[in-house]
Computed example of a mutant assay.
Amino acid sequence: MASMTTRSDNPASSRFPVGRQAFPHRDLTGIGRLQRHEILFLLAEAQQWVEFNRQSAKHGDLLTGLTVINAFFENSTRTLLSFEIAGKRLGADVVNMHAAQSSVKKGETLIDTAITLNAMRADAIVIRHGSSGATQLIADQVDCPVLNAGDGQHEHPTQALLDALALREALVARGQSADDFTGLTITICGDILHSRVARSNLLCLQALGATVRLCAPPALMPTGIEAMGAEVHHDFDAALKGADVVMMLRLQTERMSGQFIPSPREYHHLYGLTKRRLGYASGDALVMHPGPMNRGVEIDSDVADMIDRSIITRQVEMGVAIRMACLEVLTRARRGVKGWS
């Protein structure tokens, strides 16, 4: 069995407060609830799992005997798979509950579903739901830690954390300091209005010191988003000037009712990331995308697949490590880890 560390023998631990003071939250329902040092703590904890996951043997026993329920009321293949792999690599019993199999389809209320899950004595519940606030509603009804895997247009905290970890890894690989993102300019372009990923990334990246530009057609930009500290742009070329990182988002047509864009072709002309357009950013700007990608709409294949610039596959890899870290940290009290009860 591969060796696994806990916070007491993780070298990064000495940078943070001892025990539960490092991360005092029972749940992870949003980035907006976290302090900067708490975000950095989760990133540091995830780093050991990055190395662990690159070993040939990737199974440990820290969560042996614990049950993790992945309750997905909204479909997402990659997020569900990432959480499932994370739980199993930590040794937990992982149960996936899909919306199509849920009693919610039969008329059960979300609170009744939460009470049912709680009665099953789960040790952690991962929730994905199409309604903003649903994750917090369930967290208020259960006795175990709850992780938000995306709720409506609200937040997707583990996506923002994995994006930050992927970015930090890429910067370190280039020989750059990455204790935080002070001095970085990051442009996020796409369907900002419907994107919980954009909201969580805005909160996370700003907390780590980055300047964040948001770019979208007027119809896909939330009203008043400037109040969250973002620079708002509708001209993609202008938003790209000097950017160190460009993160593209897909059009979430499943959340749209009505005509938000003239056509995919016109959208690509104005807001698609092409090699020519990437030239407006800094000379070595990194390219990111949380997936799934619509190639030829928001991003061209020759940009998405750039070996020296795109870190899209690295984002996927970091997802497992971040989710392992979150599950391990949030279950420490239940496992009786010293200083976490």
Rank of each mutant, 00 (worst) to 15 (best):
L110I: 13
T158H: 00
R335T: 03
I31D: 01
L278A: 03
A210K: 04
M324W: 05
N53M: 09
K106W: 09
A44Y: 02
F16Y: 14
H25A: 01
T5R: 00
T182S: 15
H25T: 03
I31L: 03
A124P: 09
A71F: 07
N70P: 09
P157I: 08
C215I: 11
F73L: 13
V303F: 07
L28D: 06
M256K: 12
G183W: 02
A219F: 05
E84Y: 03
D235V: 09
V320W: 00
L327I: 04
A160N: 05
E266D: 11
P217M: 15
F181T: 12
A238G: 02
T211F: 03
A92H: 10
Q136W: 04
L171K: 06
P157S: 12
A239D: 13
D180L: 12
T187Y: 12
L240S: 06
E108I: 13
L28G: 09
I138H: 00
H233K: 05
T135L: 02
I307Y: 07
V329Q: 02
P292M: 02
D179L: 10
G130F: 02
D300I: 07
K275H: 08
S310Q: 09
E51G: 06
R255F: 05
A166F: 12
G272I: 00
I125Y: 01
E298S: 14
H156V: 06
I188G: 01
Q48M: 10
H268E: 11
L42S: 04
A325Y: 00
D308V: 02
L220F: 10
A243T: 12
D179W: 04
H37I: 05
Q176S: 08
A114E: 01
H129N: 10
W340F: 15
A173D: 13
R323Q: 14
T187C: 15
P24E: 08
L330R: 06
G65W: 01
R250V: 15
V68C: 00
D9N: 14
L81Y: 13
S76N: 04
G32W: 00
V212Y: 10
Y267T: 15
L161S: 02
M1L: 04
P17I: 06
G91R: 04
R276F: 15
P290C: 12
I311M: 05
D140Y: 08
D237V: 14
P24R: 03
M4H: 03
A100M: 13
E169T: 15
A285N: 09
V95H: 08
Q206W: 08
T64E: 11
L330Q: 07
K105D: 11
T187Q: 13
K58Q: 09
W49I: 00
Q159W: 06
V68Q: 04
C204M: 14
A239T: 08
A238N: 04
G87I: 07
I111W: 02
M293Q: 14
Q35T: 09
Q141V: 10
L42P: 00
R213H: 15
T187H: 12
Q252W: 07
N70Q: 12
A243Y: 06
V245N: 05
